[in-house]
Design a protein around this nucleic acid. Structure first.
Lengths: 335, 335
DNA sequence: GTTTTTAGTGCAACCGGTTGCATTATTTGT
DNA sequence: ACAAATAATGCAACCGGTTGCACTAAAAAC
């Protein structure tokens, strides 16, 4: 159906190889021939077949991206970054969502392998490193996003949970909070564990009371988790809450307000991520901002580096505290 | 590098074609041979090369998806649906975002063409039908999502804006609202026009006053648009607002609340889409629910039908009114 | 005991490109 | 005017599969 190099060759009266070289601007082809070939290609509406090219180049110019859940705004921004960087480098992006289904993850990796993607990016999968078993066997470069493995087989680009949490908590402490609790999420056990650990560490150093992590089992989604945590948060009589991420924070916020608790007057809420929704929540959410798009962009950059045969090392990007309206100094009783 | 059919052939002492047929469970191959081949393939860790298969089959088992903006939760649910259906049928999904950049759209289509995707799904592109110029030339099945073109070249799956808006407005009218305004968005002129038209039509029929559409030019994003529309909404003294979509509604909600206006006590707000965020906004948003995942799923189903050579006709899915807390009967002064 | 089927396998061409090497025509050097 | 260098193109193999057809050997038919 589609126009091939062969047809151009016939019409131009040259060989297939000459056409191929002309189209690729090979130096040894005469200008006259090049022009003729290009013109004929144009006329015939020739569109090069990447499949054929891939087969002989052994390169597909394709990146496979695995994400756990699509419904996480965090991932969108990461993908936006991936798409941006990949597109600019002539790569296309194959996206597949695992839906927290282990079987499905295997299938995805298998499919990527069969399609001979040049590299794989795994973003925010709660399954993290057990990928190793499958991924390690196949000889495809892999970048993990937010799954730092200092000793691991895979390179990763991530944020520093420890430092970021510290920064957020220090702000809360500075404005006078002393009873601060942490609301976690069961969706991504590993990064949640890192943040909770950072929470404990930070408070302990300054001598403030450390509460048990609050994880409401209710939630499939982080929002539900946040909502379901409301009661226990109230019971702690905390004046401030640090949440695993913005969605937990927003869910919590909604639930507390529905119970008639004023935010931030009675309780300050701090999120993590800075997803778009943080901006138009009521009140606008104070949060620790992850450079989401950059995570995606750098993941691609690193992948391409690896494809060039270079060694790359893990990358850690800084977070930034964004103070909005969901936090304020505690009521005076604490002072 | 990777194991090929040839190596299996050598080890099994048969020809390449026999291996190929054995792996594809061809009926004419003896059971003994099949077993031997499969076992050797297993041992060698053979992973079939889809690229090579695509080349000879002239089928890539790949669907290209173009979306306008990644930051729209609506699109992600659609993609979730697409991914789900595609994966189940053995297709993979190539995603590319156009970022409302016309040039980029062309590049995406071109890339998809080069990669010989089997079909293309265009979701919520504000550019809609001018795709035609490019898309029509290439001989690839296309499905448009929410871009109904009764007379058009392309098949589409979409919702019925007219009926849905009517349903939403009727509810507001039933509970007593008489001054209802419409806040639009500039991001997707066509569907916005449809909804505004439906708004006018509905109110006119029941004899209620029709206000000019309110579109704040400020916004890149729908959220900003909603925020920026707040002042003008107040000036109209409306008791209820129908918004183009949930993000506009949430932006408006945030802005109004910041100005001290109680929602829904002073003004009822109704969105459109039912994105996840609608559930955990404060107050939880009343909205007209689009079957987002289904839009994606049906798009794939239709595409595959077309690939089978069948004719398909446009599909229109019903929306559903979801009443939550952002709407209530107006204060008595109106009664 | 031939002849006809049938089952199982191999040959070789094809999908649409790329590329090392040989070949021919044209310049350049002396 | 002839050898050597250079420029431009073609040949053919290759990437890793698929598939129509020919072929061989064994089973069935007569």
């Amino acid at each position: 159906m589609a126009v091939t190099i062969k047809e151009i060759a016939k019409k131009a009266g040259v060989s297939r190889s000459t056409v191929a070289r002309a189209l690729n601007d090979h130096p040894k082809i005469s200008l006259a021939t090049k022009q003729k070939v290009h013109q004929i290609a144009q006329e015939l509406g020739y569109v090069p077949n990447y499949i054929a090219q891939s087969l002989s180049n052994n390169r597909t110019q394709t990146i496979g991206v695995v994400i756990a859940q699509v419904t996480d705004p965090f991932n969108w921004n990461v993908i936006e970054g991936i798409d941006l960087a990949a597109h600019n480098q002539g790569y296309s992006v194959l996206v597949a969502t695992a839906r927290n289904d282990r079987q499905r993850e295997f299938e995805i990796i298998e499919t990527f392998h069969r399609r001979r993607v040049d590299g794989i990016i795994v973003s925010s999968s709660h399954m993290g490193s057990y990928h190793s078993q499958v991924l390690q066997k196949i000889d495809i470069p892999v970048i993990l996003i937010n799954e730092p493995e200092p000793e691991g087989v895979f390179r990763s680009v991530s944020i520093n949970d420890m430092a970021s949490v510290q920064q957020g908590l220090n702000y809360l402490i500075d404005i006078g909070h002393q009873r601060i609790v942490y609301v976690g999420s069961a969706n991504r056990p590993k990064s949640n564990a890192r943040r909770y650990k950072a929470y404990r560490g930070t408070l302990r150093v300054v001598g403030l009371p450390v509460h048990d992590e609050i994880i409401a089992e209710a939630g499939q989604s982080d929002i539900e988790t946040g909502r379901a945590a409301a009661k226990r948060v109230i019971n702690t009589q905390a004046t401030a809450v640090l949440c695993y991420n913005d969605r937990v924070a927003l869910g919590l916020n909604a639930a507390l307000r529905e119970k008639g608790i004023a935010i931030p007057d009675a309780i300050s809420i701090m999120g993590f991520d800075d997803i778009d929704e943080a901006t138009y929540a009521v009140p606008r959410l104070t949060t620790i901002r992850q450079p989401q798009m950059q995570l995606g962009e750098y993941a691609v950059t690193m992948l391409l580096e690896m494809l060039e045969g270079h060694e790359v090392s893990n990358l850690i990007l800084p977070c930034e505290l964004v103070v909005r309206d969901s936090t304020q100094a505690p009521a005076r009783q604490e002072t």
